[in-house]
Amino acid sequence: MRPALLVPLVVFAMVAVALAVGLGLKPREIPSALIGKAVPTFALEPMKDFGPGFSSEDLKGKVSIVNVFASWCVPCRAEHGLWIEVAKTGVPIYGLNYKDRPNNASAWLAQLGNPYTATGADELGRVGIDWGVYGVPETFVVDPDGIIQLKFIGPVDRNALETQILPKVRELQAKAVARAG
């Protein structure tokens, strides 16, 4: 058999592998440009009835989760229960209320419960843009130096919480303890 006859087969195999890899990619998940960078400088206005707002300074000195949510965001409702659970374990969660109406947002939190250590309203979505937010919900893990260490796009389910977000939080907490001791 002439080796040239194998060329189509080899080309086919290469294309097939490339396409198989492509099938596994998630085009909705754009890699964040902010991983490993400091959180943007911001100061969020308080949400109606859920003051007092928060700023970049509040994220320093501890490992925290920043969750971008909105009352108009249906998947946010799905993940909300998990945040209430996480809040009970003492991990500080900051809620960035993205492009929401004050009344809707506070009614939403009043109805579903408020897991957030502090919440801030970003009515115009400008702080969201500084965080590279493009789809709500989004979740960030921030280390004690205020460096963004993880970004999760889309609704967090139990699997994502337990395999990605909480391990990262624990890892960073352990690092902070090691450094302090």
């Binding site: 754009i30 890699p31 964040s32 440009a33 902010l34 943007p40 843009i129 500084d130 493009y134």
Partner: peptide, 8 residues
Amino acid sequence: VVARYGNW
């Protein structure tokens, strides 16, 4: 814009 959203 790239600083916020990457080269993407």
